[in-house]
């Protein structure tokens, strides 16, 4: 990656680095994390990478996408660090970087928010459709097919057609947030 991008990335990660600077590498987070087993890099190592300013490595790792926000680490961290928030912030950075690698995660969230913006509330069925289409993975829908059937049988699926128009209130709100966030 080019230096300029690197600098930009480092800037984006700086507030997250501040969150974990006081980490003493005791490993409580990693031993407590229900998803650590699936992570290429334990949470502790992610914090270490952040401390050392290894921004590229953090993003390359991507282990943070496996955080399920259970807050156990946050609760247990002897330094009282906002670790779940740090994970969440990393996800945000990725979302903004639009890194392809995290397509499944980011897209999921983006499509979700699209649904919200449109209706004010989420239409779960609609959003899943949007998500599955956007993933462009022909196998994915099959993965969720059994669930869909079940929901269908319990009359839990909402088959209102996706509305094209937006919810005005939501549009305003989203717009305002965007303005505020991008204000200097």
């Amino acid at each position: 990656m080019k230096d300029a991008e690197n600098v930009q990335l480092a800037e984006a990660l700086a507030p997250i680095r501040d969150m974990v600077k006081a980490c003493i590498q005791c490993g409580t987070c990693s031993a407590s994390c229900p998803n650590a087993f699936a992570m290429a890099d334990t949470p502790r190592r992610l914090w270490r990478m952040l401390q050392a300013g290894e921004v590229q490595m953090v993003l390359k790792s991507g282990s943070f996408t496996l955080c399920s926000a259970c807050y156990t680490c946050t609760l247990r961290c002897p330094r009282g660090l906002p670790l779940t928030d740090a994970m969440s912030a990393l996800k945000q950075v990725v979302a903004h970087q639009d890194a392809l690698r995290f397509a499944s995660t980011t897209l999921f969230y983006r499509k979700f928010m699209e649904s919200v913006r449109r209706h004010g509330r989420v239409r779960e069925t609609e959003f899943m459709c949007l998500y599955l289409t956007a993933m462009k993975n022909p196998l994915l829908p099959f993965q969720f097919a059994p669930l869909g059937l079940k929901l269908f049988s319990r009359k839990k699926l909402d088959f209102r057609p996706p509305s094209k128009g937006g919810d005005a209130r939501m549009d305003a709100l989203f717009q305002k947030v965007h303005e505020l966030e991008n204000a200097p």
Partner: peptide, 12 residues
């Protein structure tokens, strides 16, 4: 309206 679920945090 929707609370944003876990998705909003990942976006903004």
């Amino acid at each position: 309206t929707c609370c944003g679920a876990s998705a909003a945090a990942s976006v903004s």
